[in-house]
Design a protein around this nucleic acid. Structure first.
Lengths: 340, 340
DNA sequence: CTGAAAGCGCTAACAC
DNA sequence: GTGTTAGCGCTTTCAG
């Protein structure tokens, strides 16, 4: 068996509880015993058994993440590693570890969450709110278990701490950018309306058009999957229209890539014949041909703030509900024509 | 407090130990009591406390991953999500969870590992052998703790289970591919020689040249970082040479991207003036301009087999040491000129 | 086939 | 300041 707190206690000639207090750096322990105990710990190469600690103290110093299923498209999208990187950095700074499980179907996901929560494997949870994990959220709320959402919850927005961009504004600005560049026929290529991010961005798009007195055309509004194929399909549809748009706002760089390649196949030049603004500003945006003008939503920041605020919530149970908005920034590249 | 095994026992009118046996699906329990106990568990919505279980059973059903530090370039490289996806899938199939920590410096990494291992947070470890984590490996060996390496260990190759490609052969083939296409001036752009992957691939490169009676030129062998900038620098150097190479083998798609962009800036046409073969075949390879001929090393497979074999090792302590070779495949695209 | 009881290694009252 | 003593919730001998 490994060396335990008792061994240390024996060697240092104190009680186990004293050792425990030294580990916790309790203020009411004399400097001398502290030193003595620490020496004993060194000597025996003592390392606490975290399971025992977690069992006794009801805390784990780890935060849980429910990943998309491994087959999921999300894995392909560079969004995921970036947000994970942010989460991981926020956790590391506070000495929290990460615990991840995957759920294929919604049902599996819920089970995985229950497993983590009831199993007391984690102190809190970060949800990558790709789909509307309604079941998961209501479970966590019922259990009063700390969690934060990256993105915007579809219900109870005021009662759930979440980290998000101001997607309405971001998309309004992106659209206005095109309007300022002389465009009036602007199409919107978004994801499923089940995703709040789509709802918000669509909203921003409409706002911008309305403000500029441009009528909204339903045939200019498309919903596809967040994948290259999605972008490809969208373009095919749009280009079949009698009146083709002269510019596109696309809610994801990956989709925009599909857009670009399809336009290329059709012999339609970007930005000469059609302008494209996209979202996320992942590395791909810079590398594509032409490089994409894209709204940087600071994905790392989303993850980072999510762990930060989750940890606050864990450590202070009556931390108020928060809504953290991460600022965005339009990064101009070469996919939009100059104002005429 | 949550519902415990005792509550279930009470409701089912059995002893706690019986409940435990039912959970473990012990064969020597009558079907009837099993049913009875299960019913009670349902009724109370019982979920085991995993910390308690881990403490008592000395096992966690969790595998640990040591990630590169969050600032690390590795995070940028699509290698990471893919390998994680593979690991995750292998773990999920066996109902293992993932536990990750990050280490910035080598020292931090070692501490994180010790924390996980002595803290009994994980049953085994997967090392992404980016750097030669010598300290970590010797620690794990000393502790006789299950671990597998993705990549090739720099020492004790025969005694450490690892999952790798046959990098010598892969690079030999890639080089031969260029030779078959009429090239004789082939440069090698690789990473640090501290990485076994570089050593092996360089070896394969030299083999191919030797077999074809092409003299090896040291000025054609470059070592840079696995980033775009690395590729850029390499090209600058090579193009300053009196006798420029007519083709390049690059050990990473990301570097190859840098190569491509720099060549483009210099006005050197790919593949007309110079041919490029690269490695990893991440999505980027397909999207670049021109699309890269790249060796697909099945990154997902590396991760997947790593968790599979780790779990085998965990569950059977005298599982033999294994070396698992994942097959590769050259994917032809447009970055190489046709044989003349 | 099932129950009783002794831990797993740690924390947290409660004493003194 | 420090020791004593119960647990935390589960598994696992050992009995029967």
């Amino acid at each position: 068996m490994a060396v335990t707190i008792k061994d240390v206690a024996r060697l240092a000639n104190v009680a186990p509880s004293t050792v425990s207090r030294v580990i916790a750096n309790s203020p009411r322990i004399s400097e001398e015993t502290k030193r003595k105990v620490k020496k004993a710990m060194e000597e025996l190469r003592y390392h606490p058994n975290l399971n025992a600690r977690s069992l006794a103290s009801q805390s784990t110093q780890t935060i849980g993440i429910v990943m998309p299923s491994s087959g999921d498209a999300v894995f392909q999208n560079p969004f995921f590693p970036s947000v994970l990187q942010g989460i991981s950095e926020g956790a590391r700074e506070k000495n929290y570890a990460l615990h991840m499980t995957t759920g294929k179907l919604e049902k599996e996901t819920l089970e995985a969450v229950i497993h983590m929560v009831q199993g007391k494997r984690v102190d809190g949870l970060i949800l990558l709110n790709s789909k509307v994990e309604d079941k998961v959220i209501s479970y966590l709320r019922k259990m009063d278990f700390p969690f934060v959402i990256i993105g915007k919850p579809s219900k109870h927005v005021e009662e759930i701490t979440h980290v998000d961009n101001d997607n309405v504004r971001a998309m309004r600005e992106a659209t206005e950018y095109l309007i300022d560049h002389g465009h009036r026929d602007i199409a919107f290529i978004g994801g499923s309306l089940e995703l709040m991010v789509t709802v918000d961005r669509l909203h921003g798009y409409k706002q911008a058009l309305k403000n500029a007195n441009i009528p909204i055309k339903n045939e200019y509004i498309l919903h596809e999957e967040f994948r290259r194929e999605g972008g490809q399909e969208a373009v095919s549809e749009l280009m079949a229209l009698a009146q083709r748009p002269t510019s596109l706002v696309v809610v994801d760089d990956f989709m925009a890539l599909g857009v670009l390649s399809t336009l290329n196949e059709l012999g339609i030049k970007v930005p000469e014949e059609i302008s494209v603004v996209s979202f996320n500003n992942v590395l791909l945006a810079e590398l594509s041909n032409p490089p994409l003008t894209s709204v940087d939503i600071n994905i790392f920041g989303l993850g980072y703030q999510a762990s930060k605020s989750l940890i606050q919530k864990i450590e202070n149970n009556n931390e108020p509900t928060k809504r953290i908005i991460i600022s965005h920034k339009l990064v101009e590249r070469l996919s939009c024509s100059e104002p005429s």
